[in-house]
Simulated assay, not measured.
Amino acid sequence: MLLEGKTALIVLAHQERTSFNYAMKEVTEKALKKKGWTVLVSDLYEMKFNPVLSRNDITGKAKEPSRFKYGAETLAAWKEGRLAKDIKEEQKKVDRADLIIFQFPLYWFGLPAIMKGWVERVLSMGFAYSFETMYSEGPFKNKKALLSFTTGGPGSMTTPSGLNGDINVILWPMQNGILNFCGFKVLEPQISYAVAHIPDEARVGILQSWEKRLEKIWDETPITFLPIQDFEGMTGGFLLKKEVEETRSDNRYGPTVGQHLGKPLPPDSQLKSENSRL
Rank of each mutant, 00 (worst) to 15 (best):
G254P: 02
A145L: 03
V244G: 03
T151R: 02
N56W: 06
T18K: 12
Y135T: 05
K93D: 05
E245M: 13
P139M: 05
Y253L: 04
I167L: 13
T235Y: 11
M47R: 15
F104P: 06
G81Y: 10
P255R: 01
F149P: 04
N275I: 09
G177W: 04
D268K: 13
S54C: 05
R213L: 12
E220S: 05
A84S: 15
M24R: 06
E26A: 14
L146R: 13
I87G: 11
V169M: 08
A145F: 02
W108C: 12
K33T: 10
G237I: 09
A84C: 11
W37F: 15
V186I: 02
N164I: 03
N180D: 12
R82H: 13
E16P: 00
F102A: 08
G71F: 08
T150I: 05
W210V: 04
A196M: 06
Y253G: 09
P267R: 10
T74W: 03
G152N: 08
I10C: 11
K85D: 15
I10N: 07
K35M: 14
G81F: 10
W108R: 06
A84D: 14
I100G: 08
W37D: 10
S42K: 02
M125K: 10
L44S: 13
Q270S: 04
Y193I: 03
T28D: 07
V11E: 09
E120P: 03
M1A: 11
E211A: 15
D230H: 14
P112D: 12
K63D: 11
S124Y: 03
T18M: 00
G5F: 09
V11M: 08
H197M: 04
Q259T: 09
E46P: 00
L9F: 09
T221R: 07
W118F: 14
R248S: 02
G71E: 12
R121W: 08
G155E: 13
Y70N: 03
L271I: 01
T7K: 14
P173Y: 07
